[in-house]
Design a protein around this nucleic acid. Sequence first.
DNA 1: ACTGGTAGCTAGTAACACTGAGTAGTGGAG
DNA 2: CTCCACTACTCAGTGTTACTAGCTACCAGT
Lengths: 109, 109
Amino acid sequence: MGKQMTEMLKGTLEGIVLAVLTGNPAYGYEITTLLRAQGFPDIAEGTVYALLVRIEQKGLVDVEKRPSEKGPPRKVYTLNAQGKKELDEFWNTWSFLSERLEELRKGGK
Amino acid sequence: MGKQMTEMLKGTLEGIVLAVLTGNPAYGYEITTLLRAQGFPDIAEGTVYALLVRIEQKGLVDVEKRPSEKGPPRKVYTLNAQGKKELDEFWNTWSFLSERLEELRKGGK
DNA sequence: ACTGGTAGCTAGTAACACTGAGTAGTGGAG
DNA sequence: CTCCACTACTCAGTGTTACTAGCTACCAGT
């Protein structure tokens, strides 16, 4: 993946995953394939799992273990209240940055 | 500054500075105050200088030393051809990410 | 002499995504 | 029955980045 993209994902990937989790609980493998399907560049599996561990430790999601028809049991992540709050903040931060960037792009001849 | 913003700036701050440099050469101190004036959160001076060193080593800018009326000589940075190319790539990456995020925001019920 | 504004620089730290590997469980093809 | 593909998760190590918290240095005004 491009180095630029890699760096730009820092700080946004977490928000992306939280956004994906909004309304529909999901497990790691599912999220990874979902992101790839939605056009996101090749997200490494390891990256997603590490991120999930992080947001779990931050208490942004609830975790439930469910048996799978295929393979080992899944860890299903559900966005909780604190996670929603974090997601709101994420959108605020994103909007701010996005607006500034758009201004720069216009002004930058 | 917010931790979220800090992480989100990773990868974008370089593009921001390159964009600022488009059309008008500037020196470090100037860029710092400019960014702050343009509404960007408290960018640390040290951050800007470190970034300038980086883009200089990458060969994205030309540097010229000019005496200042006030204080030590200024290092004026000018965007060169390679820098413009990098900036174009930055906008591409940014656009891609931005579109995906907007979709997520809408779809995110 | 001293303060404040200008201008640049540096070492150390924390956070994050990636790489590349590994461990398991299940079901189907041969 | 064995091998392989898919599912699902885990982990150690790496590179990049922005921040913190300082420092040096020059000049003008008080």
